[in-house]
Design a protein around this nucleic acid. Sequence first.
DNA 1: GCTCTGACTTGATAAATGTCAATTGACTGA
DNA 2: TCAGTCAATTGACATTTATCAAGTCAGAGC
Lengths: 231, 231
Amino acid sequence: MRPEDAAAIRDLPLFSDAQEETFGDLVRAGFLQRFPPGVVLINERDPADFLHVVVEGLVEMFATGSGRDTTISIVRPVGTFILAAVLNDQVYLQSARTLEKSQVLMIPAERVRVALGTDPAFARAVVTELARGYRRAIKEVKNQKLRTGAERLANWLLKEDVAQGASGVVNLGFEKRVLSSLLGMTPENLSRAFSTLREHGVTIHGAQMRLTDRQALERLAQPDPLIDSDE
Amino acid sequence: MRPEDAAAIRDLPLFSDAQEETFGDLVRAGFLQRFPPGVVLINERDPADFLHVVVEGLVEMFATGSGRDTTISIVRPVGTFILAAVLNDQVYLQSARTLEKSQVLMIPAERVRVALGTDPAFARAVVTELARGYRRAIKEVKNQKLRTGAERLANWLLKEDVAQGASGVVNLGFEKRVLSSLLGMTPENLSRAFSTLREHGVTIHGAQMRLTDRQALERLAQPDPLIDSDE
DNA sequence: GCTCTGACTTGATAAATGTCAATTGACTGA
DNA sequence: TCAGTCAATTGACATTTATCAAGTCAGAGC
């Protein structure tokens, strides 16, 4: 593992307060693997044997059921999955698939549970991270139940613009069909939602969107920090 | 507080492994209050000053946005809300309202955070509870995104029947409009969904439903333990 | 440069769900 | 017993979203 990768992992709030020994143990026990795009890393229903850390690339968390599938979230570097399954030693509720070439550190679940028991600072960080995960999930339930598809798209664009430097330009970074799945709609419907947004301050250029009238977009989106703010 | 209430709270997985002193501190610091039905106990956006324990009654967790509102969950005795907001000292993402006459113990948030830092057994229980909360929320995201309204109703009935003793009779326990909100649909649509289920093994008698052909209902519902099992 | 493939867009139609209004039934209070 | 209120049901219609099909475009491979 390159030193800068270890440093980036160390900087994650989950690990930043852990004792040096704890962090060293976790990272040394982990396997760092490279994967090409399109590889399924874990399957829902699998036992949670590893805590995965996305060091480089992009990973889609998804789930299937009733003959349908849906994207639950996109994990960027440096991000982890799935802490709750690892800590409670239960099966994964989601599958994960690389969207682009990725590097993933796989830390054995047992080592994470041991660290939880021996390092109080790490335990506190785990609590904070689990609470943040819960709050993000509640925000998503609200996003799905309280908003139409076009509203979810509008809010996603506003949020993503801020995440990408608030320049008024949003680069998608993955295929539109993944975005449609994340937002809870079909690819055709996402296309129609983008068409709707053309009249509300957005222009579309392939995988890049420009927010040309932010206030018009916000009027449609009605952003709410209790749904849209970062955790 | 009646001894049997304290015993019931003690039996909650969150508290059952806490040291006697920790548990005593938390309970003594709490205010036990009685509320009539229809009372809002907390509002979303409020600072999380208390961990609430529903000792008796029934509490609806709900949220509003875009001029709409939705029921996120129903808390029965003995259940708590909202641990994640208390631990991370952040605003509530949900509001709570009594559905019937209720007794609620309100434990100051600071005391919970102190207990987290001093009692390792309690801290482990907190981790487990936060992980369960996260997993429940992910199951709800899947429920909302992967299923139609009638499928959600069918699965709710199957699950609730088991929770009520698997007798084939489900007593709603609150108004149907609350159930419609919980399932993510309008009251009219719930009514239509119940009509649909009449042809799939369910008969409706006011607030009581009978499952007359469980297999027919399961064929429509397609229950999935990764969505429907208890956490 | 050409062909093929897959993502995306668009059109038409179907299904699911929401909105609005009217009616019915149960419950409460006088 | 009657009147009023509220929840629920049902009907009609509107909106949102899904499905299916056809066409377009960009990119990859030869």
